[in-house]
Design a protein around this nucleic acid. Sequence first.
DNA 1: CGGCTATGGCTAATCGGATTAGCTTTATAG
DNA 2: CTATAAAGCTAATCCGATTAGCCATAGCCG
Lengths: 188, 188
Amino acid sequence: MPRGRLTAADVVRAGAELADEVGYQDLAMGALAQRLGVRTPSLYKHVDGLDDLRRQIATLAVTELGEAVRAAIQGKAGSDALAAFARAFATYVTAHPGRYTATIGAEVSGPGDELYDASARVLESMAAILRGYGVEEGEMVHAIRTLRCLFHGFAALQSSNGFQWSDDAAESFDWMIDFVDRGLRGES
Amino acid sequence: MPRGRLTAADVVRAGAELADEVGYQDLAMGALAQRLGVRTPSLYKHVDGLDDLRRQIATLAVTELGEAVRAAIQGKAGSDALAAFARAFATYVTAHPGRYTATIGAEVSGPGDELYDASARVLESMAAILRGYGVEEGEMVHAIRTLRCLFHGFAALQSSNGFQWSDDAAESFDWMIDFVDRGLRGES
DNA sequence: CGGCTATGGCTAATCGGATTAGCTTTATAG
DNA sequence: CTATAAAGCTAATCCGATTAGCCATAGCCG
């Protein structure tokens, strides 16, 4: 039907790259249009404004993150799985600060929402790890939320330079994971 | 010297209230001026623009939070102190969502910066709790960062409706604290 | 092959909020 | 009582997002 230049997915992907490069704060329609070799208003044929773009970037990020962690924990269990998850998570957040920042403030509605579903997939990976530790179903919700706070908090602080998170960054992160591991092994 | 109507502190405080009421996203110079019964440009005599206002709200929030948690853990140690800290933290974040949101993305520079110093005071309270658990100095940094991730993550998720954090909110939060408590008691 | 139509792009215009410029008032120090 | 500097105000500017409305063309159908 139409001439096939740009697609919505292209715009979102380019937006994500831009956010990673210049920082989430400076993600702007004008800059994005320029990067795509197009005039600003044209973007509105593909996304429904800046807020929509942000939300879609968040969704992309959570989706990619979900794939990354799922792949990372494949065939692993217990400490190995937890460590793999943590490493994959930290790697993603570090490699894509803009994308992850988009997820920090994004409002999640309910089932059916793409962002919600993508989040659910990440949570499912967490649940798989926790089941490997023998966490009971009754406590699963709480344990998942605890992990979520921990990882999300890490990412949020990281992305805003919250800690002077200097050299011993990795060391603290490892300590944190080890702390959780011991705690979970003590559970069952 | 001048006529003494508004002071910088007034503006920041009113901005914080506004943010709590309408949400951090909708914090705007115009609305703030209106609330103060003043025209928008007048605000610039007290704060150095919107970014500065945001930063000062973040500083106010962290300062208030620091006082709240310090008061809460007074004379307590171990599990009691941890629980008191957690309760005070959650209470503050719930009561002042706009203020806390301001702190989430705020860049922290270094010593001498007011926000940095306020943060340091909160961290000192965490350190006091951890010392009560017998955490060694060598691990202190890591333990503090872990707590920080946990609490900050909780607040960030809470403020963006990240969990469906429905009824069992408090329950999960308590579980989380209990998990940390057991982990720390296992340390020493 | 030639016209139809929906779509993607463009220019021009609008809107809204932040910020700046420059003037005016007034509390107060001296 | 007056000089002054802070605090307000109005008017103007800027900039980025968004909207309105027009143009070009790719793909499809006869």
